[in-house]
Nucleic acid binder design. Structure first.
Lengths: 243, 243
DNA sequence: CAGTGGTCTAGACCACGCG
DNA sequence: GCGTGGTCTAGACCACTGT
């Protein structure tokens, strides 16, 4: 009854979790594994797909299947969500940013509550943990609220570091919508993950105390690398109680 | 360059989004579609897998492939997360609950901060929107905090409705950890979703004002049906600022 | 029973990485 | 060039649904 691909997946998973295959190790080639388990390559590949979905195995075209390094889950902290400083300090996070000027269109007008065509700045931010891409963020800010440093000729590295700090003025209200989905082909190749691995997508909208939206961010994290944590305390409960 | 399965997926997706195929419609059989697109059945099935991952198509063994009803996304509200009452009122949500007594083991002892073997009550809660399962929750409560109604012979329906309200005493602190992943085979069959569709998994721990954990909940939602929304206001920001 | 999807085979050929 | 994974074929056989 249990399909062969699940039996094979279980066997390989056991070898990984018990340490017979360590992080970074290359698995035998797919044809070798297919021979060993006496199945066709298609069946073997579907077994590996299970492990990819669990984030245990990474496939690299032309090189092989590799056991992923144990995932140090990084915590995204809601509220003013950047990365948890404690975690971020532990981890070598490099960030690249591409800055683009563009007019508001479509969903962005609704998210930012601005008119169609209103000038925006987009920051396409890609963070790396060591070699592998770790998260993708598209951040939109009204042009007049964009820090001048970001628009000057200074290196984007400067802005990148600044972007981890709380903006000025600080947001009075932050709404975050969290969803789970599969990555788009674009996102999958940018993050170098398989399209079978779920991603955590967070849409974060921050407003100042006048209700003006000062930033909208579309964040994408590989599901096996990031958890999002939200904490609420009684002050919030009281407010929500008479909703 | 673009693979055939993506071309076929795009074509079928267009037929669905433009209304040429409506919600509930059955697609032609896989062999008929394979003939039409001049591909093998394996290729055609991989094209359908793309649409399943997007939640557009539901496969039913022995019957066919069906266009899913447009997803009224239901909003899970963080903080004291039940379902948004406004949304829940719109939707015919039925709930079944299975109640089990069990001792704390493994992860549960850490989550609930109780000793190994400490008595717990588990509520396995499955909610339906019309015919199709909508969410799966495993809720753990220390035995001495379990409402007596839940342990009596009353119908589980009573408890089901009660479980949507805020418990007494109300939690002083709620921590929610959100992650995106693929469903386990068990979860997929319980929720009647494909294993290729991402789920939103939320671990919610609620404590009273003495710090005692009064409830731990493991919630699983199909990614295409539920978004989780978290809102924070300046009072929270100030607290987090001097972290 | 007939018709559907689910799993699997034993290949072929293509695209990528590296020496 | 060689070995790797990526895509695809043209079937076979099994499992589920409804008549």
């Amino acid at each position: 009854m249990t399909s062969r691909r699940l039996i094979i997946a279980d066997d390989l998973r056991r070898q990984i979790t018990t340490g017979r295959l360590g992080p970074g190790d290359r698995l035998p080639s797919e044809s070798a594994l297919a021979d060993r388990y006496k199945v066709s390559t298609a069946t073997l590949r579907s077994a590996l797909a299970v492990l990819q979905g669990e984030g245990l195995v990474e496939k690299i075209h032309g090189k092989g299947n590799f056991v992923r390094r144990p995932l140090r889950k990084i915590t995204y902290v809601g509220g003013w969500g950047t990365l948890d400083p404690r975690t971020a300090a532990d981890v070598d996070l490099r960030v690249t940013v591409r800055t683009t000027a563009l007019p508001a269109r479509g969903h962005l007008t609704a998210l930012l509550k601005v008119d169609d065509g209103s000038p925006l700045t987009e920051f396409l931010r890609l963070s790396y943990e060591g070699e592998s891409p770790h998260s993708l963020a598209r951040v939109y800010v009204p042009r007049d609220l964009t820090p001048t440093t970001a628009l000057s000729n200074r290196s984007s590295r400067t802005w990148a570091e600044a972007s981890f700090s709380v903006p000025d003025p600080p947001p009075a209200e932050v709404h975050e919508t969290v969803s789970a989905r599969l990555p788009t082909p674009d996102e999958a190749s940018t993050l170098r993950i398989n399209t079978a691995l779920a991603v955590l997508a967070i849409t974060r909208v921050a407003a100042d105390n006048t209700g003006r939206v000062i930033e909208a961010a579309l964040l994408v994290f590989p599901g096996d690398r990031v958890d999002a944590v939200f904490s609420t305390h009684h002050v919030i409960e009281e407010r929500q109680a008479h909703r």
